[in-house]
Nucleic acid binder design. Structure first.
Lengths: 192, 192, 192, 192
DNA sequence: AATGAATGAGTCTTCATTCAT
DNA sequence: AATGAATGAAGACTCATTCAT
């Protein structure tokens, strides 16, 4: 059944299968046979398209990062220009579906942990880390002096990631309402 | 030459070696031969003392949790009874050495991620998670109405864990001063 | 766009690519993807033209044998009819370019070694082996009694192959002058 | 069945199994499972004792070289001090059992061919190559001027290796009588 | 108490081949 | 004529565990 132009289809198939496997089995227990099985293809195809397991893992993390970036951008596009609204949009983006469904959170956490010992994943994670911080700081600086804006950005970033981490670790599904509310209060407090 | 009373010594040796290995190699790349080598013993001894790799991993996480508990308790013992002081003590405990040295943070993160797929680790992590929240809530309730205290506790717990997570992921050593300051401001804000 | 008359071009392209790959990577590490890549074609084409990897390998060895045969015939054609001159011509042929460039010698050696376990290659190698011997014996028999001619032929063949083998194994390029001189002395000695 | 002090026994077992496998299957087709199976052990043990397939291959070649060295030394010890006798002893050593049984010759050829692309094997092979040459030259120099001795040594070395190579490639068992006789004649010729 | 020899399942990767287009 | 997608077996290697000593 070989066909031409399968590359994008197969790549997405395999990335989806990777997310599913990491979610269900955990990062350490995810083997390429598991992934191939879920994707309904043979193991050899992974090397064919991604050059190996590492390539697939990295592509998967890149996909998640891009997804998050898209969601945030989309929500920001729908609000007016006030810093408060834009900050809130960033918060909402970080707690929107599918960022807060259990599977995604588990995969994120797995990636973060493993990024500590995989240089390429580390690089990707750093980009993400810095992106959140600088987005927040940019908005705070419209209103606050530089140093204060830096602190506010760090605090809000920590608050977001903290809710996020605790959500990933706790049993049961997450209700994003409370995190959003508390972040919102934190923003108003800082902008005051 | 059989030696008597080696058990506690060997156990601690092996736990230390595990921490060192997980820190340096990451959770997924830590094998029992690596651990045994660092401890200067044979691999067989691990099964002998801990029943297997899992047993050692769990004992190591239990050890970390106990350490954290001890530090917090110690700091709390040194402050007066005001909720603000006690909350701040908890914060300080969570950002005290060795909780904030890079090695410990990497190990914690590795444990958290793997706890998602190891029931026993998950149980331990849940205890820790709940302990922080209830400690904070207990103090807030001395001053705030129940629902408000609950929210304040959740916010502060997220702030602590968020700083903590971002610290683990960022390159370079961590300066606990800013997290403590921002947590302190958050506490004052909530108690107002 | 189907092209006509590509067969001889493609076949030679692939044989050249095979020689290049075996020379650079060694026999055991030469894969058809490597060959296809060097030839600038797809892997499928190899099966199409040679029926599989084995077919290509055999065709390549046949090509080398033919090359050697041509060179020897050519040099023999240019000398007078004396046995000494004709024997020397055979020697010169076996040490002429490109037989003595490093790449060719490495490929020959690789083929010989693998011929021990590939019947078809073995057959080709035997033909070559016998051809050298009988060519030499034929000349020696013009001058020497049969048994003596047989021995002289075996000795000279060994001398040629020995220089050749040692040349293949030693580091650096080969100077064919000394082997030719010593073979020449050997011939004179035998013919005396 | 684990016992202590198994290392030398197992190592020799595995080296013997490697020789048997390379002889029967060829270098390229010799897998560690084949070797382990012949030795009657599990595959893991190879990594345990030799660090991997490469380590075993190298140890095996080292073993062969040592064997050859021992045989030559032994035969040299039994002859008087005349250069002719000593040169003949070296020749005899190179054509003595087990150097000339088919299996050993095939293994040697396989090693030589693969040495072209394995640095460590190449190093071992170079040592062997140089050893033969310098042993021969040393004896010739007792009688001949330096340059002539060098040439005689190169010629005799080529003759030895050439007989040897042709013996490895030809079908059927080898009779070392003729090579020894012709080498002997060559020696006498040179010393004259 | 402690060792380290031994196992065998499991992992990732490579590869020759096949085949629809 | 030519491609390259896809397969699945086979390869080397790692690893947690067991066990005789």
């Amino acid at each position: 059944m070989p066909k031409v132009g399968m590359q994008p289809i197969r790549r997405q198939q395999l990335i989806d299968a990777t997310l599913s496997a990491v979610n269900e089995l955990g990062f350490g227990e995810t083997s390429i046979s598991q992934i191939a099985q879920r994707a309904g293809v043979s193991t050899g195809i992974i090397s064919h398209y991604f050059g190996g397991k590492n390539g697939l893992i990295e592509a998967t993390m890149r996909y998640l990062l891009q997804q998050l970036g898209n969601v945030v951008a989309e929500i920001k596009a729908g609000v007016d220009d006030s810093p408060e609204q834009r900050l809130l949009a960033i918060v909402r983006g970080n707690f929107s579906t599918p960022q807060t469904d259990k599977a995604a959170m588990k995969v994120w956490l797995a990636f973060w942990a493993s990024s500590l010992h995989h240089p390429e994943l580390h690089r990707l994670q750093q980009v993400n880390h810095y992106r959140l911080h600088s987005n927040l700081k940019y908005e705070f600086m419209k209103v606050l002096p530089k140093q204060r804006a830096e602190q506010a950005a760090q605090g809000l970033a920590a608050l977001i990631d903290g809710f996020w981490l605790r959500g990933a670790l706790v049993s049961g599904e997450i209700d994003p309402a409370l995190p959003i509310q508390l972040c919102s209060e934190y923003i108003q407090q800082q902008l005051k």
